[in-house]
Design a protein around this nucleic acid. Structure first.
Lengths: 392, 392
DNA sequence: CTGAAAGCGCTTACAG
DNA sequence: CTGAAAGCGCTTACAG
């Protein structure tokens, strides 16, 4: 009591309610009191708080302090929060009141240390600023949120090795409970992913399966079905000479899409781009220079198709009168450009959602063993970029 | 030794090196040994590991186990890792060897519990799948990575109150050390943000300042300068009758852009959209129906400008011969559509990078007090959507 | 319905 | 150059 003048406030309770001096509720949310002494733990405790230092980050309240203020044990506070065992309603009410008043929030790290669960999942994508991966991310986040998981994003930046390390370390340090991985290029068997996933870690592959990782569940589109449909569409329009601007040669999706198109165009010329507009432009440029003749262009994604259209336009070739062009994905711009791009719509949002769902399923089950891969249906969208082949 | 048959492996060392049985290195990375007994802590320890249960998530190694294997204290292992005090090079070498061999990674949660730092920052954006916010996210992530911070993404989904709660709780639970907040609409003074930021929490506003939060640093574009330039451009082309399809009325950026344009077009009609393509379309539709006459349209962002262009096209009005259209942002499609959209380029990537930089500065300094807001320059990009006003 | 106590896996004064 | 020990803030058997 010698230091009584340092006490700025006190709180007390009897077993029926809680008493606070008027100014107590006005304490800034983040200003943490130190318990300086106990008068009677069952009914009163003295609480002091440090001088107003709203500059440095103030220490948050602890469960210990809530317990002391409520005159109960931490056990009871903990159970009031978790609901894992009954707490008398009077006590619970009092504790909850204190928690609200103090603005107490349990420390996530401490919680995690005991429970072993961080409540976080990770998403590794090549570039979060791409529309395509952004949609996946949004789907993942929606589903994660529905299941009370937080989301940590890691851009792989098209395989920067330092970054690759980083997100797998998130898994290792238990910062995240599971990882959703979206491959951008072929994954070499030497990749860290291979060794990690070999030990049945909680990993789901989104959008792109990886050869040799059959035990890792994946969520992909039915690429072959979509490509087949596009092929038939152009075949039905009378086209016979086609070129395919494919993606990276090692990717599952590329292989599947090329195969699907080839069912209708077995002789189609195949060139490879990198999924960006410029590469579509460049490939068509090269083909034109080489004198290759064609009336149809398959872009393995919309961006390359757009690049192709631009080069055709510059060459004085009209779309679709002279050349028909199709893409894949149905990105936001596909319907905005003129002519609109005929393409196959992938539901990227759903790919993200389902990926998260599979991961969380596995997490809840304690193993990815029973989790099955998913292939989602796609839908052809016919717009103005395709038309009947020119006569003559 | 009665249970010797349960021991699958052992390890030992003398003070010059480490000895392991051949199969030891082949242990799956995540299979954790339990220390079953010590023969001589200074030279040998017996390690057993559980039956091969590659199904359930296996327990990772602990620092305790590394220390035991190396015959040193945890203190020394910890300091070998952190470098916070000298460790004899022989010991350090031995410990590092063990760490590599075991694939040990320190537990992030435990580390955080002691150090009080999670190494994570949060980013709250309305919708991560939008190109615009995706660019910000990417910039934030780049900078965060450079400073060894992880990034947690929270979509605010245009102010779903449940979500709003969630990301501020990340801050409260110490899951993240700081938050970058991108407002999508006007922030009401009753918002949680207001109360949180009032206590000088580590928060940075990206892209959009908020009235009444002067103490919270922000990173924005020079909206008025960009808008002024667009206004002059159209004025120079001879336009006099303009309409402005503005964004949400309460946003700083909207106010600034409208003001900038009005310097050249004080009488411009102002209508408000929601930044989406459809609203640009709808507003022009309404104006045409009302018989409003104009030769120039200012979209407060590119998407609305694109919507406006589409409606004009449908009305048989040519861009730019009959009506000139400008946008703001220079999103990816601005250069792809025909005609290309004249607009003002904002460097969203840099907005993200700088926001993260300010936040991390404040975090390192222990306070946001000295952190100054930033306004980034913008650049007008003239494309085909603007031209001289039609004579007559 | 409630509490005392152990312990999650680290870091860091304190003491050689 | 190194170690024993306290403690970060919780959760959870164990014991009433």
């Amino acid at each position: 009591m010698l230091e009584a003048n340092r006490f700025a406030s006190w709180c007390g309770h009897d077993n029926t309610g809680t008493l606070f001096p008027a100014d107590f509720a006005l304490l800034p949310l983040c200003k943490a009191p130190r318990i300086v002494g106990f008068i009677d733990c069952k009914s009163f405790c003295i609480v002091g708080y440090s001088e107003p230092v709203d500059d440095a980050s103030p220490k948050p309240w602890t469960m210990q302090q809530i317990a002391a203020a409520a005159g109960v044990s931490m056990t009871t506070v903990s159970h009031t929060l978790s609901g894992k065992r009954p707490v008398s309603s009077a006590t619970a009410l009092r504790i909850r009141g204190l928690i609200d008043q103090f603005g107490y929030v349990p420390d996530a790290g401490a919680r995690r240390l005991k429970s072993g669960r961080s409540g976080m999942i990770g998403l590794a994508v090549p570039d979060i600023s791409h529309w395509y991966f952004g949609r996946i991310a949004r789907g993942v986040e929606e589903m994660a949120n529905e299941h009370d998981f937080g989301l940590i994003i890691c851009s792989t930046s098209n395989s920067d090795p330092r970054r690759e390390k980083r997100y797998f370390n998130l898994l290792r340090t238990r910062s995240i409970e599971g990882l959703i991985y979206t491959a951008s290029r072929e994954i070499s068997p030497t990749d860290e992913l291979m060794s990690i996933s070999a030990s049945s870690s909680p990993i789901v592959l989104a959008d792109e399966g990886v050869a040799g990782l059959s035990r890792v569940p994946s969520v992909t589109s039915l690429n072959s079905a979509g490509a087949r449909e596009l092929g038939r569409h152009l075949r039905d329009l009378g086209h016979t000479r086609a070129v395919i601007v494919a993606g990276f040669a090692g990717l599952h999706s590329t292989i599947e899409r090329v195969a699907g198109i080839r069912e209708s165009f077995p002789d189609a010329v195949v060139v490879h781009g990198d999924f960006e507009v410029q590469s579509g432009y460049d490939r068509i440029d090269e083909l034109l220079a080489q004198g290759v003749e064609f009336t149809a262009v398959f872009g393995c994604n919309d961006y390359m198709a757009v690049g192709a259209m631009r080069r055709l336009h510059e060459a004085g070739l009209r779309v679709p009168q002279d050349v028909s062009v199709v893409g894949f994905d149905d990105v936001d711009i596909a319907g905005v450009i003129t002519p609109g791009l005929t393409t196959v719509r992938q539901d990227m949002l759903e790919i993200g959602r389902r990926s998260a769902q599979l991961l969380i399923e596995g997490l809840d089950a304690g193993s990815m063993r029973g989790v099955e891969s998913v292939a989602l249906p796609v839908e052809m969208i016919v717009r103005g970029s395709t038309g009947p082949v020119a006569r003559g």
